[in-house]
């Protein structure tokens, strides 16, 4: 069970860290300063979640791996984030639609996780639920503003949604790790909140005058099957740490 639990924790940590890494690439490139503050805020919260998850994974694993060992010294193919969060930033529409799709899932996830029998995860969930509620509020505002803004913003938002919708089914997948943690009431089966998720996103798309796509679904993140560009993302993230093995920072 321990192996499966560690894998589960790493999976959630990877999701948060990869998304955080993507968002922080926007720093100094955002369309206004107020939004620079907002993007940094979301990225910071996600790093915090990743750190707690990685630290707990390392502790559970019991071989002395720290949060940094897990973030900087695993190869790209060991990362289990869903493909959704590694989709390229693209324009602001792509980034915010990605954020919205992620946050609408994560808000439900963390809310449900506050009931986890695992104290560490329940405590993290308490914090993360509040953080994610705010991220969702922010992303939802933007999806609506862009969808129901100008002709140009509408097109960009629809293009983004058309591309990203194909990565959402994977958010509800389960494998032996999920099954194991769910059986012990430590984790949650995301299919439990799938109807609520669908209703929620549909309502926002309607308000945004966007149409919900029909798309071929892609998966592979949890098996370490990432898309082009992911290796470079991880390599850049790990580059300084790996240039000085064993160093403290």
């Amino acid at each position: 069970m321990s192996d499966l639990f560690v894998r589960y924790l790493l999976r959630q940590g990877d999701r948060a860290l990869v998304l955080s890494q993507q968002l922080s690439a926007w720093v100094t490139h955002v369309h206004d300063l107020e939004e620079e503050m907002a993007v940094a805020n979301i990225s910071l919260d996600l790093i915090g979640q990743a750190r707690t998850l990685y630290a707990y994974a390392g502790e559970t694993e019991g071989s002395g791996r720290t949060e940094d060992d897990l973030a900087y010294w695993r190869p790209a193919e060991d990362f289990q984030n869903p493909l959704l969060v590694e989709q390229p930033n693209g324009d602001f529409a792509m980034t915010m639609v990605r954020q919205f799709l992620h946050d609408s899932w994560a808000a439900l996830y963390w809310q449900a996780m506050t009931e986890s029998v695992d104290d560490t995860l329940a405590a993290l969930a308490g914090k993360a639920a509040k953080e994610t509620a705010y991220h969702l509020r922010h992303a939802k505002s933007w999806v609506i503003r862009m969808g129901d803004g100008t002709e140009e913003s509408h097109q960009r938002a629809q293009t983004a949604l058309d591309h990203l919708w194909g990565y959402t089914d994977a958010l509800f997948d389960s494998d032996d790790a999920e099954i194991a943690v769910v059986a012990k009431n430590i984790g949650i089966d995301p299919t439990n909140f799938r109807p609520a998720w669908l209703t929620g996103v549909a309502a926002v798309f309607a308000e945004a005058t966007l149409h919900q796509p029909v798309a071929a679904q892609r998966r592979g993140g949890r098996d370490g099957l990432h898309q082009p560009g992911f290796d470079q993302l991880i390599e850049e993230m790990q580059s300084v740490a790996r240039a000085h093995p064993g160093a403290q920072w």
Binding site: V27, E36, M237
Partner: peptide
């Protein structure tokens, strides 16, 4: 920020750069 060599340093640097926008 992208290649900060520890997660703590990454968070701190991001908070600092955010402050500068502020």
């Amino acid at each position: 920020i992208a290649s900060a060599p520890s997660l703590q340093r990454k968070a701190i640097l991001l908070a600092k750069v955010q402050d500068e926008a502020g």
